[in-house]
């Protein structure tokens, strides 16, 4: 059994289901990427894993424990970190305060974790006293990821971390995500930039209309002619 297992998740906000028996999994130190066309339910699947979507069927387990009934806050305590796509930093607070707020649920000394975040994202150390709202898009995403890392999560979930940043910044962010994974954290992310994301993915999930369409390693999916033709534009 993998570290995170989300098995046959079915559910939605209203009467109609958005997810239909959607299954995702990722192990420690791995990167799993969810790709798919617009409206495929990628973000919804991520939210379901995080407990922000009521499930009618299926279950989610983390490190062998069933967490299907936990609230998002409880899942944070259980070791999940979540970086939303938008509004993912406290714009009026300094970078350092953002990180502190990330560690809000911790009662122990979190300064070594903050050091780790600063050494992962050195630019943040420079800008630690600046309000996060004044940073560039890429720097903000680093703050957002750093904030989520402050709880020392065992699973980090990223909802389109590279949305709206330049290609150079995107590459940089992917490099950082690889570094994070290398520390033994499981990473689950949704990406629009499917090609680049699958290139660093250990597992790739192609979702269509809330269902698993293709599931394989990132490399294999990139090589699959059908995936290339239908989802990666040739």
């Amino acid at each position: 059994m993998t570290f995170l297992t989300a098995d046959a998740m079915t559910g939605g906000y209203g009467a109609a289901d958005i997810l239909h028996a959607c299954t995702l999994a990722v192990d420690r130190g791995e990167i799993a990427v969810i790709v798919g066309p617009n409206g495929a339910g990628k973000s919804t699947a991520m939210k379901a894993v995080f407990g922000m979507l009521p499930l009618r069927a299926g279950h989610v387990s983390l490190d062998g424990t069933n967490i299907t009934t936990l609230s998002p806050q409880e899942r944070v305590r259980a070791g999940m970190g979540f970086v939303p796509q938008v509004r993912n930093v406290f714009v009026s607070m300094s970078v350092e305060e953002n990180l502190e707020m990330g560690a809000f649920i911790r009662d122990d000394d979190f300064h070594d974790t903050m050091e780790q975040v600063f050494s992962l994202f050195p630019i943040l150390r420079q800008k630690r006293r600046q309000p996060a709202g004044e940073l560039s898009g890429g720097q903000r995403q680093q703050v957002a990821v750093g904030r989520a890392l402050m709880t020392k999560p065992s699973l980090l979930m990223l909802d389109e971390p590279t949305a709206g940043v330049s290609p150079i910044v995107m590459d940089e962010l992917f490099d950082k995500i690889l570094e994070v994974a290398a520390t033994g954290i499981a990473i689950l992310m949704v990406e629009q930039n499917a090609r680049q994301a699958l290139a660093i993915a250990d597992r790739g999930y192609v979702l269509v209309q809330g269902r698993n369409r293709f599931t394989d390693t990132g490399e294999a999916l990139l090589a699959d002619p059908e995936v290339r033709r239908t989802f990666l534009g040739g």
């Binding site: 979540f82 509004r87 607070m93 502190e100 707020m101 649920i105 904030r147």
Partner: peptide, 22 residues
């Protein structure tokens, strides 16, 4: 203070504050 910062965080971004366990 931690509580005061939590107040500012909540005022700034309610959803993210919830995610942070505030």
């Amino acid at each position: 203070t931690r509580t005061g910062k939590a107040m500012r965080a909540y005022s700034d971004n309610e959803d993210l504050a919830l995610l942070s366990g505030i």
